[in-house]
Design a protein around this nucleic acid. Structure first.
Lengths: 198, 198
DNA sequence: TCCTCATGTGAATCCACATTCACATCATAA
DNA sequence: TTATGATGTGAATGTGGATTCACATGAGGA
């Protein structure tokens, strides 16, 4: 038998693995059997820790939310000023995409229509929260004078989000041939010209 | 019995209906029973005209591709110059989103990972084609001097695509409360400042 | 040591769909 | 008018995957 674990640790482990599968296969291809195998369990064991498939997906999204928000907060804390925080955030997104990390990948493909209503609501909430945080950075940038004050912060935040989303798709289509780091560097210049105060 | 149709017309009708359902439910929620009902047929009748579910989805994506490309080409033909073509294209995307039209909706939520390999390849091909067309507009804009020539056309095209994608998500989350037309007008100004030659 | 509860297992079930099939019906051409 | 092929129908059938269940096992306390 597999090494036993208390349910709290197991839940966390399963949720993380689920996030990985979700990023890899999408919610359509996500299935319990593969999830169980990826953590060295038998499918039925998953039900010791979760109500069911939807519950697992919900937990995976919670992990996702925490990671995304942590990414923004880290960039905010580590950078010298709001504009540099945005740049740092952008390059970190790019790195995650390059390494196959789940976060921005899911953010981009976030099933707009798919899935149950409550799951949809959750993903949308996560996205709103992300945008709100970026919006906060934009406001700070406006206060510090780096970002033009006549710009609508929400628009700027959505523009920022849009710097990555299409790149993720293209990355998926082209694979290695599409250099996401270089792309991000270029669109960052465009973004700065769009919102910057020079 | 339902009114008979020759298989060509029926295929087209079914493919269009399938695209609608795809936009509404996503590929995860898409099912033959609902599709059949939406065109007034019984599920098994669908198999008179298609090999199976994947075949239907493929046909729906063909319709999708044609519509998207037609949208770009129309904007290109109707506008006076490349920059105005991009603006026209953007506002038309916005209108479609507002009216619940499927096109940009699917473009945004385009299952990056989900689905069978061949279906994925198809959606990616459509996206690449879209980007390539926008890229062509950008090049034209550079030739005509409206767009800075030191900009990478691919980057600009992806930035353009990114103007809409996040907006679609937010629109879905906020519903009517999010005024997509107004948003698009604002990000267009940002886009123009980013790529324009003034 | 023995009890008991939490966790893990393998073998059923269940279920939502896709898919198939034998038959009905209509259009049309001879 | 009748024969034939194309299209539609309803009732099976098949199937992948989620979920349940009876049982096994190991860890920790009495």
């Amino acid at each position: 038998m597999t090494q036993r674990m208390n349910t709290e640790a197991r839940r966390e482990q399963i949720a993380c693995a689920a996030l990985g599968l979700l990023a890899e296969r999408g919610s359509e291809g996500f299935n319990i059997a593969e999830l169980a195998e990826s953590v060295g369990l038998v499918p039925s064991a998953v039900y010791r820790h979760f109500e069911g498939r939807e519950d697992v997906l919900g937990a995976a999204l919670d992990v996702f939310r925490d990671r995304v928000y942590a990414l923004v907060d880290a960039a905010r804390n580590e950078a010298e000023n709001p504009l540099m925080a945005l740049e740092l955030l952008l390059t970190r997104h790019a790195k995650l995409i390059e390494s196959g990390g789940a976060v921005p990948h899911i953010m981009a493909s976030m099933d707009v229509p798919g899935g149950r209503a409550d799951r949809r609501a959750k993903t949308q909430g996560i996205f709103r929260g992300y945008v709100a945080r970026v919006e906060g950075l934009v406001r700070d940038g406006q206060d510090s004078g780096q970002i033009r004050s006549d710009i609508d912060p929400t628009s700027a935040a959505l523009l920022f989000a849009g710097l990555i989303q299409p790149a993720v798709q293209l990355r998926h289509a082209e694979g290695e041939r599409f250099d996401i780091t270089a792309h991000v560097a270029r669109v960052w210049e465009l973004f700065r010209r769009a919102v910057g105060r020079d």
